[in-house]
């Protein structure tokens, strides 16, 4: 889960010095365990316990069993849909990170107010309700949407394009547009911390700009890149509205299966099991990403 943990191993007991003074650290430790235990572990654990129950005649039966988990693997639809959803969200994460990196890089190279103002401008669209944005994007992408009408008008195309009309491309594009700001910020924060002395040393030693970038800047910004990809991936996989609204009949993702268990299907036990599985998959994907990130540093 943690990108920089290898570095942390070397720096064990960062605050050991201050631990000699007063009750601060002990209080800190108390807060750090009590808050998550009460507000996160207690509610979530008791809810995920539902995943071992089952439904009978519209009522939840409190018998412990692994039936819900077995069903996930036995039924033909769940694994493929989860796989496709993961692929989709990984693509979104990759795309958002790839597009976000140059922007973060430019921001980090700017000076003073301009840098922070531009950074804030990247984040401002996040405050425009995403439902409104999805509606707007949809009216741009549709078969008679603004994009097609504009391109027909300019004569770039003769027939309306259908590549972005209610398919997975549209989902990919929309999610990326919605989530790019979440990618730019962590990368920017990582780039901003790279000491100038390191870069200057590299240049002094005769390294080219490209070499400096590949050997110094890129590896040092990698924790930020991983964080960015993680944010985007998780937010994309939790979003069940966008795929439905711009994906047409192919906009069916795992998030929607999970959601349907809690509504009309009323199968909370199965929904809880699916969520647990989703969480495990997401955590594994992120852990894998961290592993890769750490190996290359």
């Amino acid at each position: 889960m943690l990108a920089g943990s290898r570095r942390a191993v070397g720096d064990q007991m960062i605050f050991v010095g201050s631990a000699r003074h007063g009750y601060g650290p002990r209080l800190l430790a108390l807060i750090s365990y009590v808050l998550p235990a009460v507000f996160i572990i207690a509610p979530l654990a008791s809810f995920l316990a539902y995943s071992f129950f089952r439904m009978e005649n519209g009522q939840i039966v409190h018998d412990l069993s692994l039936g819900n988990y077995r069903r996930f693997f036995a039924d033909a639809i769940f694994v493929p849909v989860l796989w496709q959803t993961c692929l989709l969200c990984l693509s979104v994460a990759a795309l958002a990170t790839l597009i976000g990196y140059p922007v973060a890089f430019l921001l980090a190279s700017l000076k003073g107010r301009r840098r922070h103002f531009l950074l804030l401008m990247v984040l401002v669209p996040l405050l425009m309700s995403y439902i409104i944005k999805i509606y707007a994007i949809r009216s741009i992408l549709g078969g008679n949407g603004f994009l097609n009408r504009f391109m027909l008008w300019t004569g770039v195309i003769e027939q309306p394009l259908t590549v972005f009309v209610f398919n997975l491309n549209a989902v990919l594009l929309t999610l990326t547009v919605l989530l790019i700001p979440f990618a730019i910020l962590p990368i920017f924060l990582a780039l901003e911390r790279i000491p100038r002395s390191l870069i200057e040393a590299s240049v002094d030693l005769g390294a080219s700009s490209l070499q400096t970038f590949v050997r110094i800047i890129l590896p040092l910004s990698l924790p930020g890149v991983i964080t960015a990809a993680t944010f985007v991936f998780v937010l994309a996989i939790g979003d069940f509205l966008t795929p439905q609204m711009v994906g047409g009949q192919s906009g069916f993702t795992f998030g929607r299966i999970v959601f349907s268990q809690f509504g009309t299907a009323f199968n909370w036990p199965f929904g809880a099991a699916l969520s647990a599985i989703l969480a495990i998959v997401v955590i594994s994907v992120i852990a894998l990403g961290n592993r890769v990130g750490q190996r290359s540093t």
Binding site: A37, I41, S275, V282
Partner: peptide, 21 residues
């Protein structure tokens, strides 16, 4: 791990778990 969990869960799970809690 606990801190990350609600962020990784589908929102309906976090919401229902908290409501019942």
């Amino acid at each position: 791990f606990a801190i990350y969990l609600p962020f990784l869960m589908p929102p309906i799970i976090t919401g229902l778990a908290l409501l019942i809690f």
